[in-house]
Design a protein around this nucleic acid. Structure first.
Length: 800
DNA sequence: TCATGACTAACTGTT
DNA sequence: TTAGTCATGA
């Protein structure tokens, strides 16, 4: 209509279509860097302008980071309009508060973080006196979490025959849930579970909320789990104006119960859906995009998208091999320092990404040495520190006296002479009379087995808690200050000289500062979630933040620092220059993902996410040795590297220490491999001898040539070409795949990861014979299965 | 009851 | 490497 609509003007056609869409379901398939957030915010503004009241709009995200960014941008486009933008979990928390009665909680419920939830679980296990020898509580926790995300309540949980773990879960899950309930506490999964059940079981509430939230927008829909799916469905029956945005290729939370099918089947769920594809990339150079696109094309579970960009060709993606992890860190740090010093780049232009947090340490050290400022984006951390949790434990207790976990944390912290035995007595008493621990503590004089001394101490503890409770409505700074004062928490820390204790003191200082800032915010206008059912007290609001805010949200785009972060944390961000480190088999893809294709595909998506964060330059690197768990291991380049268009990439051999490399070589007790890549090894299709190991359907036995399937052919040629190039260059300094020392036949083990110079990485799925006759069946990542006589094969081991 | 030191098992990823 | 558990002795 209006030719100069400022809301639409700067958008391309597809983006416009999504923004202007008003009624009915909408699926926006948005590739990386395609202006997704822009579309969502503009659409909200567009809805508002067309007269939809702000309170009818709900925008849901996964992270606080995403939601605060969205809130800010909506505020820019439609100042003063107060749309409820929230994370799923906070949305759940707020609604539970409103409907606490319906779900058997009190409105002042506590949200347990993972470790508190784990402790609660352990207590449930201990109390039931269940034999816990054969499994880890972790596994039980994971099983319960999965059940919850699928909306399986304790009474519905069906143990599977033949699965001892699930039998156990069937026993423990109800006990665990009962404990949470009696403490009026929830775990993260409950925040979604309770709401899903509420909507499912209560038609009236469902209808009310459906009517209230007429326009719902969901970001990162590919990461929703079943509970979230059900919530969204329930809220979109009478007013099915559900607009979801996502990219199946960026689904990286399958391990947390995210169901990629939610987005893949959205069209089936909402038949009259409008689908908009945002395929134009505004972020990355052509070169970077091609690498990403090729890699992700190896996934089967996906919706085909064609990514394109008008951006420059850009510099080639660099693929670098380093001698070891330290060299990798050091060289990258030096490079950044140099670029910054020469004024070519700012430190904030750089991001270094890795698969696992443990890899950050070496980088930190190197950046520190090189004098480069950096910030670490890390999950949780601050609120997980002992001293912080201790102090907040008292707050929790003031807010929710039924919170047993808070009692257990605080009753003898700081040490006041209430030991394990006394606590056991209290617990027994509480269980016996079905009362909370704090109530039991109040009745200390009647508790069996308590010594008079302990009774006295417990009495003092209860008095302390009561004194604090009077402060429930005071400013946070005052509450925390009083807690510290009354408990003399800092006293023994101040006496200590240890660095750790000084650190703790500093953290407590920080907590106080944080509280002061919170008070100021609270007293002033509170811009966030004005339409949401608000926490009933300042304390409650403060705790809610502490429980649901993670350090990931503290990432600061403004300060001039290099960003260090995991690939998971990188989603939604972008940087001019990205370093993707430790592209090694077992790290990315992670070793625990090698077992099945679904997990492997998720790992590939993870790599895809990392690559597509880069705007101008991308460097992917691996090391030949990496220190892990305090031990040095051989590393082998990631199989994903063989899936990238390596002919397009600039391969750089770092200057590594030849001597130490040779040493490794000599340590292997087998002769050096004949560098001529002839076919002296057996090459026969294998479908014998390996019992019950799942057959990859792609690895069909019809593969006499090297082309099992068109997609696979690509990587094989690439790998083969790589090997050829190495020979041409006449030096073994580039592709690590041709550098590994060989093993003697008997050193190969079942399950071992190996690399073949032509066929790339694979895994030994079966072995037979010994010595010169020892044969192995290898399943390759991209080339199906083959059998080899090990004495003649060019196979080399990976790691270990 | 608590501090100390030895031992050991874990290290994906996050609301 | 390290956090977390366990055993020991004061």
């Amino acid at each position: 209509m209006a030719p100069f609509d400022p809301l639409l003007e700067s958008l391309n056609q597809a983006q416009c279509e999504a923004v202007r869409h008003q009624e009915g379901p909408l699926l926006t398939l948005a590739g990386p860097g395609s202006g997704k957030t822009r579309v969502v915010t503009h659409r909200v503004a567009h809805l508002l302008r067309s007269g939809i009241p702000a309170r009818q709009i709900l925008a849901l995200t996964f992270t606080n980071k995403a939601s605060s960014e969205m809130r800010t941008r909506i505020e820019e486009l439609a100042p003063g309009q107060r749309v409820w933008v929230s994370t799923f979990h906070r949305f759940g928390a707020r609604l539970i508060r409103q409907y606490a009665d319906y779900v058997g909680l009190t409105p002042n419920f506590t949200i347990y973080d993972t470790s508190d939830a784990r402790k609660t679980l352990r207590r449930a296990i201990d109390e039931a006196d269940i034999d816990t020898y054969h499994y880890k509580p972790e596994q039980v926790a994971a099983a319960i979490s999965t059940a919850k995300s699928r909306l399986v309540t304790p009474d519905k949980y069906q143990p599977r025959t033949g699965s001892p773990l699930s039998q156990l879960v069937a026993e423990i899950y109800p006990l665990y849930q009962k404990r949470l309930q009696s403490s009026s506490a929830v775990d993260f999964d409950d925040l979604l579970l309770y709401i899903a059940l509420l909507l499912y079981q209560n038609a009236e509430i469902r209808a009310t909320l459906d009517d209230r939230f007429r326009y719902i927008l969901v970001d990162e829909y590919q990461d929703t789990n079943h509970a979230q799916y059900v919530i969204l469905r329930a809220l979109s029956v009478d007013h099915p104006n559900l607009a979801v945005t996502g990219d199946p290729d960026q689904s990286i939370y399958g391990w947390r119960g995210a169901n990629i099918q939610n987005i893949l089947q959205f069209e089936t769920d909402y038949p009259d859906v409008r689908i908009v594809r945002l395929e134009k990339n505004y972020r990355s150079s052509k070169c970077i995009l091609r690498v990403a696109d090729r890699l992700i094309s190896y996934n089967r579970q996906r919706k085909k998208k064609s990514l394109f960009t008008d951006n420059d060709e850009g510099l080639p993606v660099r693929l670098v091999e380093y001698a070891n992890g330290e060299k990798e860190a050091q060289k990258i740090a030096d490079h950044i320092a140099q670029e910054v010093a020469s004024g070519q780049r700012r430190a904030s232009d750089f991001a270094i990404m890795y698969r696992i947090n443990a890899l950050s340490r070496g980088l930190e050290r190197a950046l520190h040495t090189a004098g480069v400022p950096y910030q670490l984006v890390r999950g949780l951390e601050f609120y997980q520190r002992k001293e912080i949790k201790d102090v907040l434990g008292y707050c929790q207790l003031v807010n929710n006296p039924r919170d047993d976990q808070a009692v257990l944390r605080t009753i003898n912290t700081p040490v006041r002479g209430i030991g394990r035995k006394s606590i056991d007595c209290l617990t027994r008493h509480a269980t016996r009379y079905a009362i909370s621990l704090l109530t039991a503590a109040r009745e200390a004089v009647q508790v069996d087995g308590l010594k008079p001394r302990a009774m006295k101490k417990i009495g003092q503890y209860v008095e302390l808690v009561d004194r604090l409770s009077h402060l429930a409505d005071a400013p946070m700074e005052e509450i925390l200050g009083t807690i510290l004062e009354e408990t003399a928490y800092c006293e023994h820390l101040e006496l200590s000289n240890s660095e750790e204790d000084l650190n703790r003191l500093a953290n407590i200082e920080e907590l106080l500062t944080d509280a002061r800032q919170f008070d100021e915010r609270f007293d002033g206008e509170r811009p966030e979630d004005p339409n949401a059912p608000a926490p009933s007290s300042r304390l409650e609001a403060y705790l809610e933040d502490a429980w649901l805010v993670s350090d990931t949200d503290q990432w600061d785009a403004e300060t001039d620092q290099v960003t260090l972060l995991t690939l998971h944390a990188s989603k939604g961000l972008e940087f001019p220059v990205v370093f993707l480190i430790a592209m090694e088999q077992g790290i990315l893809p992670h070793e625990r993902s090698n077992s099945d294709d679904t997990q492997l595909e998720e790992e590939r998506r993870l790599a895809f996410v990392g690559i597509t964060r880069a705007e101008q330059q991308l460097q992917i690197s691996y090391a030949m040795h990496r220190d892990f768990r305090g031990q040095r291991r051989n590393a082998v380049p990631s199989s994903f590297l063989f899936e990238m268009p390596r002919e397009e990439m600039e391969r750089v051999s770092s200057t590594y220490d030849n001597a130490s490399w040779n040493e490794d070589w000599e340590q292997a007790d087998a002769p050096l491999e004949d560098p001529t890549l002839d076919d002296s090894f057996e090459l026969e299709p294998s479908y014998d001898e390996h019992d019950g190991i799942d057959e990859d359907p792609a690895a069909s036995p019809s593969t006499h040539g090297n082309h099992p399937s068109p997609t696979h052919a690509q990587s094989i040629t690439t790998a083969a070409r790589l090997a050829e190039k190495d020979q041409e260059q006449g030096q073994a300094t580039t592709a690590a795949s041709s550098l590994r020392p060989q093993l003697s036949p008997n050193q190969f083990k079942q399950g071992m990861a190996v690399v073949h110079p032509e066929l790339g990485p694979g895994k030994i799925v079966a072995l037979s014979g010994s010595g010169r006759n020892r044969r192995a069946t290898v399943r390759f990542v991209t080339a199906g299965q083959r059998r080899y006589v090990l004495a003649h094969s060019p196979l080399r081991p990976v790691g270990v």
